[in-house]
Design a protein around this nucleic acid. Structure first.
Lengths: 210, 210
DNA sequence: TGTACATCAGTGAACGCGCGTTCACTGATGTAC
DNA sequence: TGTACATCAGTGAACGCGCGTTCACTGATGTAC
């Protein structure tokens, strides 16, 4: 089943891919209990290994959570870059990227709850910064396109901040990251509706006067 | 000093206003350590009472944190309502309310970190729901004003969601709720700049076509 | 004004628990010859 | 192909710690008469 944590095969000693399994278990746990419900021992339990095993790969709690947040930004950056590639024009690319952001958050609630909380992660970690930057730059490239095509006097930095903050706020407001797992169908539907409305406001806002 | 937790006077047995002191200590602790760094015992320590004292007033952790979140929404709703009263027109009221939101978040980072995380609080609590609703309705009233004055076809619900999500995202993105306490001066300045840019986009977006 | 009593507020000892981390270990895998 | 050895991956017992909660208690306050 999708989203289930891979557990060591019965009798196997070596796990196969324990780091991945531990990240998956951590994401699942955070999605269920929130970042304050996280524990290294519970993660090990869910991955089917002894509680000392995570230390072997990640050192400590911060190591595992930083790795999970980095994975989250990598997935997000990939999704945003792909969406940016497939739009017809700047507006289409912005809309698609917004959808990609929201859908990624919907699919990876544990990752996003962690990324947003910025709690218990080492936010100066090189790989972490690199992936987060890549995601931001995917948006920036689109906004630059909008400036060139639609409105030469657009303040790119302000527009980036505005777009990012808006979509992030929407994701949070929609309760996608809440512990309670609602009916995913209706959530996704209303999310898409909201994204359309958002795009409307965003594009009007950016197309307007100086 | 502003923001310090009131501690029981030396030798005094009765504290005076322990519930308030516990909430203040909890807010301070969350602002420093994040919601995952919260503990009832540490809160009691900071308020200068025994670790069993909080139970007397709040029952358990959820009781105290729900009370703190409710206080946060009450403060926010008060600030928003006041800002809504003092603007000249709808646009001015919206801008002022946005500033009120951001400044309240800046002044009460512990409250906001908790309100936003929605972690370990009873979000069906009557008082909690009432205050949160009051804050939302303060914004809604302004958006209705904008519809009536500027754009009869404005989708009020979508615009409310958009405004709330945007300002909330901005507050989060600005790192106001981060554990690390930066130089507050520069943070506040760049926050105000951002609010101006935001208002620009928001108003353009709402004033535009259907 | 004084006394007796009820209520309220906070104490401090005790409990059991889950946590993160350490460490000597053992089982599994890979490589050199 | 087989053997010896090095390296890697995960174990399980042990540690000390801070936590939330309970409970009999005592000190302080308020009220009735």
């Amino acid at each position: 089943m999708a989203g289930m944590v891979e557990v060591a095969a019965k009798g196997a000693y070596h796990h196969g891919n324990l780091p991945d399994s531990l990240r998956a278990a951590a994401a699942e746990l955070i999605a269920e209990k929130g970042t304050s419900g996280f524990s290294l021992r519970e993660v090990a339990r869910r991955a089917g290994v002894s509680h000392a095993a995570p230390a072997h790969h990640f050192g400590d709690t911060e190591g595992l959570l930083t790795s999970l947040a980095t994975e989250g930004y990598r997935i997000l950056a990939d999704a945003m870059e792909e969406a940016a590639r497939s739009g017809d024009d700047s507006i289409g690319r912005l809309l698609g990227t917004g959808r990609a952001y929201a859908h990624t958050a919907l699919e990876k609630p544990g990752h996003f709850a962690l990324m947003i909380s910025n709690d218990q992660i080492c936010d100066t970690n090189e790989a972490f910064v690199a992936e987060a930057t890549r995601a931001y730059e995917a948006l920036q490239a689109i906004i630059i396109g909008i400036r060139d095509e639609l409105n030469p006097s657009l303040d790119v930095d302000a527009a980036c901040t505005f777009c990012w903050a808006s979509i992030q706020g929407l994701v949070q407001l929609s309760g996608l990251l809440d512990k309670v797992a609602d009916d995913t169908g209706t959530t996704k539907a209303s999310l898409d509706e909201n994204i359309e409305s958002f795009a409307h406001f965003l594009i009007e806002g950016m197309g307007g006067g100086a």
